[in-house]
Write a protein that binds this DNA or RNA. Sequence first.
DNA 1: CGGCATCCAGGTGGATACTG
DNA 2: CAGTATCCACCTGGATGCCG
Lengths: 122, 122
Amino acid sequence: MLLRHPHNTEDCRAVSEILQRVGDKWTVLVVGKLGGGAMRFNELRAAVGGISQKMLTTTLRGLERDGFVTRKVFPTIPPRVDYELTELGHELLVPVGALGAWARKNTERVKAAREKFDSEHG
Amino acid sequence: MLLRHPHNTEDCRAVSEILQRVGDKWTVLVVGKLGGGAMRFNELRAAVGGISQKMLTTTLRGLERDGFVTRKVFPTIPPRVDYELTELGHELLVPVGALGAWARKNTERVKAAREKFDSEHG
DNA sequence: CGGCATCCAGGTGGATACTG
DNA sequence: CAGTATCCACCTGGATGCCG
């Protein structure tokens, strides 16, 4: 038998947890932007676009806590804070990027399925 | 080469959308269980565990709408409804499984990072 | 500049009751 | 058995104001 995708409960829970972790509104957008190199707080905010100050702070704190980004404070006036992906953060981008590639490749199929479903169900 | 991952805004949005789509509380659990083959409603509910009737219905409807599962009704008494992954659903499981594999492989690193962060930040 | 504190609207999901 | 309908607690995230 081929090595199939895992479908026992524990593995599914692990998958579910990581997906919920990175599946919030901003996390992958922020991580994606940081994939290009270190950025300052407001620089990152402008690059992501549409994110509130509160949510960028919250998102970055969570990523820092989990070891995906580092936070470097320069005690200057005005203050400067740099955020950068860790090695772990870069590694996370690999499977996330794979999922993204799948998504881009199959948007049309999903869109077609939705239109079919919606037309059939009033 | 630093540009291993896509980090332009459009790609990140696509990734973000699919992650939010499958990043809800139950979707991957349900899809994961269905990866083993077709299942009836209550059978699936017992297999997933802890999911309410309402949420299983909602989750399955969403998956059906997007073309990830099929719903087959047998007009018997009592009624019987089978749910099964489509080809698209099976394909989705590949990148999702990859992310899950990454998650299982790195839980310890994340856990260690969290403990370090929490001990340093009161 | 890069935060934190507060308030609040909307969405998510659980509990319960009812139905063909 | 496999739903639908309703109510409600909680959480996410946006807006605003203040601060070192």
